[in-house]
């Protein structure tokens, strides 16, 4: 369970990919709602969610609007605390880890992030190094970034194709460029687990594909575990190892894309008919919307 160093030193791949490896996440009996439980008619956002995320896998979480997908990744990132149930991260309970220890292992990219202040792209990406900063009594909290930090950030920026934007202010970027900056920040954090909430929402086709191939490559190279929330069923089908279907706060199907993406499951989850055939290249399920408009369920 060696941690990834600033240069992204190799994780103990063999051990973490073995069959008896500690799961990256072990989620059991999770109940979550916003606000305080005990108040009458609580609307549970997540109800009895149990799932495991294997190290080095890409798990897709899909489901209709308001099904609790985003809440689930926020719980995984320790941005919110579940009312009941527990989450273990590589064998350690998330409640026992400090926010900082979590940040050294897990990076989270939010759905959208409006920026108020004109930090440059390079400064923003370098902030991903914050959990790995050197603490010293004498730096008065200034703590300049060192060589490793700059290399990790430069690398992440090259990977996300934003190196040419280094000195632009994040407030002046387009939505897609900002999204790539935020992903680069998460990569500069050199996490073992990367949580992405709708990473492709603002991206053009080229960069959607780019991100998916980067995620696969990082998985191959350093055993990065990825949990990705997406509305794009095809993307989930083609690029995820396993897919979790979430509906009304429950995981109602979990498995490989081929086993989960069926007309019946999608009808149950989304309440509408879709067409499914095999992808010409991969043979994995390909989801197409029908031509005839089906009215909303009920």
């Amino acid at each position: 369970m060696s941690r990834v160093s600033a240069q992204g030193a190799v994780v103990d791949d063999a051990a973490s990919r073995g069959t008896n490896a500690v799961p990256a996440y072990d989620v059991r009996g999770l109940h979550f709602c916003y606000g305080r439980p005990g108040v009458q008619d609580v609307r549970w956002v997540l109800r009895d969610v149990t799932l495991q995320v294997e190290p080095g896998e890409i798990l897709g979480i899909v489901g209709p609007n308001g099904s609790g997908k985003t809440s689930l990744v926020k719980l995984l990132a320790k941005l919110a605390v579940p009312q009941t149930g527990d989450i273990t991260l590589f064998g350690r309970s998330l409640t026992g880890l400090s926010q900082e220890e979590t940040a050294q292992t897990v990076a989270f990219v939010p759905q959208e992030s409006a920026q108020m202040f004109p930090f440059t792209v390079a400064e923003t990406v370098l902030m991903g190094r914050f959990p790995h900063r050197h603490r010293s009594r004498w730096t008065l909290g200034f703590g300049w970034e060192d060589r490793d930090d700059c290399l990790a950030a430069a690398h992440a920026m090259a990977t996300m194709d934003i190196a040419h934007l280094a000195s632009r202010a994040v407030t002046d970027l387009s939505g897609g460029e900002r999204q790539r900056t935020m992903i680069a920040r998460a990569l500069a954090q050199t996490p073992r687990v990367l949580l992405l909430d709708e990473p492709t929402a603002f991206l053009d086709l080229q960069h959607q594909l780019g991100i998916c191939s980067v995620l696969r490559r990082l998985r191959e190279e350093r055993g990065l575990t990825v949990v990705i929330v997406s509305h794009d069923l095809n993307l989930a089908s083609q690029y995820c190892d396993r897919v979790a279907m979430v509906r009304e706060g429950r995981v109602c199907a979990l498995g490989t894309p081929s086993s989960v993406m069926s007309v019946e499951v999608l009808r149950e989850v989304y309440g509408c008919e879709v067409l499914i055939d095999a992808h010409p290249e991969s043979g994995l399920p390909r989801i197409t919307l029908p031509r005839q408009v089906v009215p909303f369920h009920e």
Partner: peptide, 19 residues
């Protein structure tokens, strides 16, 4: 440095390890 991170927003700040 904490102010830098807090200026990004609360959730990003938490996910970067700030209480």
């Amino acid at each position: 440095r904490v102010l830098n991170i807090l200026a990004l927003g609360e959730e990003p700040a938490r996910s970067l390890g700030i209480d």
